[in-house]
Design a protein around this nucleic acid. Structure first.
Length: 637
DNA sequence: GAGATCACTTAGTACGGACCGG
DNA sequence: CCGGTCCGTACTAAGTGATCTC
């Protein structure tokens, strides 16, 4: 059954289709929350569509009559009717999760020392000790909180005898264990081709068996079918729980979700699932509760799946609806800056920040449970400084706070006088650790947004501003006369503008300076090569002028071509260097994957004849297959 | 209506294999 | 072919926001 084949990349040779209109009430159901789906059974719909697709197949596609199954058409879920609100699927069958491999005790000759003396640990205590030993090189293990949390949790795993002996972490010597693991890593690297091949095949087998599920007649890829192995928790930033033991997940912790009429995956022999349920109002297949924060973890489908793709599409449609009313909303919050009600003013200033600076909403967090980070609504007085004048600009707000993942947000922004005055008001008589917006939280803000536009929440502004910025930057930066590499540089720069807006940072790659030097020396070499080629061209020209024969004319031509080729190569390298330099601390992938309406990029590629592969890698093309299939060059976000 | 719970999206990093130049 | 570089992927933490519960 071809429907059960894993999804494949959709190429441009798909049948011609109707253009996407901004307001589309057209042929394809746009995924609006309120769209009323037909009651028509899906199966019939499937067949109808399949027949239609077959008819429409282009001649090229028909010609390629390879017997291979991969040539079969990929399922275009975006051409189908959507389920009513709330229902996520009608049939779901899967094989359950893959558990972490059981602990393998260390060989006898690998020793742990306590207070300078060899000590044999119980299996449970040893396992936890290995987690620490594996991290020994990391600076984590020197941090007070990490060590304290680790030691407390480790002691829980010890026998009473071990507990009474091991009373101080600083007397523990894990170095031998650490050396052993390093040797293991080294050995793994040195494995023969055959051994590596064997491991690869085993992984493929696992993926084939557990990596897919059947959801409503289609085989879909699962994103994370492996259960997280036990280990030491490493939070981001200054996390109060760093070093705690992440316990091993057992079948008894696992809730299975699948449809009633499906084959329920059997638990491992001798075990039971915590629960099997049949809830088609949710998209997850497996869940368990994690012991660090007590939060629920899920196994869900891949971004290429229908269920994720539809949601993603819908997200961009909501952002496009915001585009239509954003002016009105902006006027409204500017009015609200003048409101008599403090609550309304705070709301309006916060919304201005969310809109102008693409800040996150900023839910409250439980103190002591997570790293101290904030978003817009949770900003504290200590996170901003007001400068009536700074560097020749008036009314500058200086932001300095840690946001999601403890990434620093630092920005100096000139704001309107009214905003500035309001901020002064909000900060009056407050301590640095007091909330800036004390009458506001995300719930109040989102309720207000809901009244302004259906489906509007704070995060829609990030999506909207990111996408509209890309579209506008592409228009501005693309030079029609540029060659492909230069156009791609322009694309990356537009992408970069968004990444900067959204504050998507990365640690500069460890090898950054070196790789930059390498590239520079390549450029220098290329420059010399070019000079040589030019000299040769010059002498060939002179030669031709004297001889005036066919042969020397040809020689001039070929030298000319050589110069051109080298010039192009040089330019490519220079573009690459610029791109890399500008990208040192900026991560483009997050915005590309989560904030930029893919149809903008697809349309741009089509307009300028850029192969889509230059913009999206294979995985990204799978995720955005709907957009690649759908968007024409005149697509407007 | 406040806090807890649940579901789902968004995020940076580590790592390993593909790839490229010497 | 080999060693270094780079890219993609796996991993899982950390957000958002709706809904449930008391």
């Amino acid at each position: 059954n071809n429907d059960l084949e894993p999804p494949l990349f959709v190429s441009f040779c798909s049948p011609p289709r109707i253009k996407d209109e901004p307001d589309d009430d057209g042929f394809y159901a746009s995924p609006k929350e309120d769209s009323k789906p037909l009651k028509r059974p899906r199966e019939d719909d499937d067949k109808a569509k399949k027949a239609k697709n077959k008819d429409k197949k282009s001649p090229e596609a028909d010609k390629r009559k390879k017997p291979k199954k991969e040539e079969e058409q990929k399922w275009k879920w975006w051409e189908e009717e959507r389920y009513p609100e709330g229902i996520k699927w009608k049939f779901l069958e899967h094989k359950g999760p893959v558990f972490a491999p059981p602990y393998e005790p260390l060989p006898e000759n690998v020793k742990f020392y306590y207070d300078g003396k060899v000590m044999k640990l119980s299996t449970k205590a040893e396992e936890v000790a290995t987690f620490f030993a594996k991290m020994l090189d990391h600076e984590y293990t020197t941090k007070e909180i990490f060590r304290k949390n680790f030691f407390k949790d480790w002691r829980k795993e010890m026998t009473s005898e071990e507990k009474s002996t091991i009373t101080s972490l600083s007397k523990c010597d894990f170095t031998h264990m650490s050396q052993y693991f390093k040797a293991q890593t080294e050995a793994r690297k040195q494995m023969s081709k055959e051994e590596k091949q064997k491991i690869k095949e085993e992984n493929e087998r696992l993926l084939k068996e557990y990596g897919y599920c059947v959801m409503d007649n289609h085989k879909e890829r699962i994103a994370n079918f492996k259960i997280e192995p036990p280990g030491l928790f490493r939070g981001r930033g200054n996390h109060p729980k760093m070093g705690m033991l992440k316990r091993r997940i057992m079948p008894e912790d696992i809730i299975i979700n699948c449809s009633k009429d499906s084959k329920v995956p059997p638990p491992p022999p001798g075990h039971k699932w915590k629960e099997v349920r049949h809830d088609n109002k949710v998209t997850w297949l497996v869940s368990w509760t994690e012991n660090i924060q007590g939060s629920i973890k899920y196994i869900m489908l891949n971004p290429s799946s229908r269920i994720k793709g539809e949601k993603d599409w819908q997200k961009y449609e909501t952002a496009r609806r915001l585009k239509k009313c954003v002016d009105k909303i902006r006027n409204q919050y500017r009015e609200d800056w003048k409101s008599k009600e403090m609550k309304v003013r705070q709301r309006a200033v916060a919304l201005y920040f969310i809109d102008k600076l693409a800040l996150r909403a900023g839910n409250e967090k439980e103190e002591g449970e997570t790293a101290d980070t904030v978003g817009c609504c949770s900003l504290r007085v200590e996170h901003i400084k007001l400068h009536p004048e700074l560097d020749g600009q008036e009314y500058v707000v200086e932001f300095d706070f840690l946001g999601k993942d403890s990434i620093r947000y630092y920005n100096k922004v000139p704001v309107e006088k009214r905003v500035f005055k309001n901020l002064q008001l909000f900060m009056e008589n407050k301590q640095p650790e007091d909330d800036l917006f004390d009458r506001l939280n995300t719930s109040i803000l989102n309720k207000h947004l809901q009244d302004l536009m259906e489906g509007l929440t704070a995060k829609v502004f990030r999506t909207y501003n990111a996408s509209i910025t890309l579209q506008q930057q592409l228009k501005e930066l693309t030079n029609p006369d540029d060659n492909i590499p230069a156009k791609i540089l322009s694309y990356n720069r537009a992408n970069r503008a968004v990444a900067i807006l959204c504050n998507h940072q990365r640690a500069p790659p460890k090898t950054f300076e070196k790789s930059m030097m390498n590239l520079q020396s390549k450029i220098d070499a290329k420059k010399e090569q070019l000079a040589d080629a030019r000299r040769e061209l010059k002498s060939a020209k002179a030669d031709a002028k004297v001889r005036r024969d066919e042969k020397s004319k040809k020689a001039v031509e070929s030298k000319k071509k050589a110069v051109q080729r080298i010039e192009e190569q040089l330019m490519k390298l220079e573009v690459q260097a610029t791109d890399r330099e500008e990208n040192k601390q900026i991560a483009l992938s997050t915005s590309k994957l989560n904030y930029l309406d893919p149809r903008i990029s697809v349309a741009w590629c089509k307009k300028w004849g850029i192969p889509i592969e230059k913009i999206y890698n294979k995985t990204q093309r799978e995720k955005f297959a709907w957009a690649i299939d759908m968007a024409e060059e005149d697509y407007e976000f």
